[in-house]
Write a protein that binds this DNA or RNA. Structure first.
Length: 223
DNA sequence: GCGACAG
DNA sequence: ATCTTGTCGC
């Protein structure tokens, strides 16, 4: 499958150029309701790093059957160092070729990273969503920016993640008595819908199944 | 100037 | 992210 990228730009850039690209693309992020009735597949995407190589993995789940219907792996040289706030430039170059291996583009993309909860409101989930003009959101294991108050221990509980007096995401409890995950909008979804999907797909582990499986595939090389 | 800092 | 055994608790 050939990907048609919207607003394509170079990836071999300096940190300063990367920041400018984020500022240019950030205004393109749109938050809109997800048409749940049309959501059949949700893909979990994750990237692992070993030595000087990065490995992107994608696991596509049919949310009605909760079954894996497609998967892909792409490995290559690490293109960019890890710089807080510029994760996209390290992971997207590996994610794109992995996406091309899929039979079709998933209805929704779930990233193991931040989306709107980013210093320039353009985390990895926003970046990929805008490039593909596809619904996307992030489910991170820790906070990049923002703070939040306490939240109930029950599964499904949540509290707003605030940064500079703006709600940028939500701390969501996916499992009782387990540290929360941080959900934020990527593109073409509302924060509420992203949280609903996150909780609904977290059936067995702290991380929702798409992301959990993608992490496993990326790290182990197999499901 | 001193911390914080997705993965 | 990655290096890694056992151990505490529901």
């Amino acid at each position: 499958m050939t990907l048609d990228l919207h607003h394509a730009h170079p990836w071999d850039v300096t940190p300063k150029e990367a920041v400018q690209i984020q500022r240019d693309l950030a205004p393109l992020v749109r938050e809109e309701p997800l048409a749940f009735d049309a959501v059949r597949t949700v893909a979990g995407l994750d990237v692992s790093v070993r030595d000087d190589r990065v490995r992107a993995a994608i696991v596509v789940l049919d949310v009605r059957e909760m079954a894996v219907v497609d998967q892909a792996i792409w490995e290559g040289p690490t293109p960019f160092p890890y710089v807080p706030g510029l994760l996209s430039f390290r992971e997207v170059p590996a994610i794109l070729p992995a996406l091309e291996q899929l039979g079709a583009l998933p209805d929704v993309l779930m990233l193991d990273a931040q989306g709107y909860a980013h210093p320039r409101r353009f985390g990895l989930a926003c970046h990929l969503g805008v490039l593909l003009e596809r619904p996307a959101f992030g489910v991170a294991k820790s906070i990049l920016v923002g703070k939040h108050g306490p939240l109930a221990e029950k599964k499904g509980s949540g509290t707003e993640l605030i940064h500079n007096d703006e709600t940028v995401g939500m701390a969501v409890r996916t499992r009782e008595n387990v540290k929360p995950v941080y959900v934020s909008v990527g593109h073409r979804v509302t924060l509420r819908d992203a949280c609903l999907l996150t909780v609904r797909l977290a059936t067995k582990y702290k991380l929702p199944m798409p992301t959990h499986l993608a992490h496993r595939l990326s790290y182990r090389g197999e499901l």
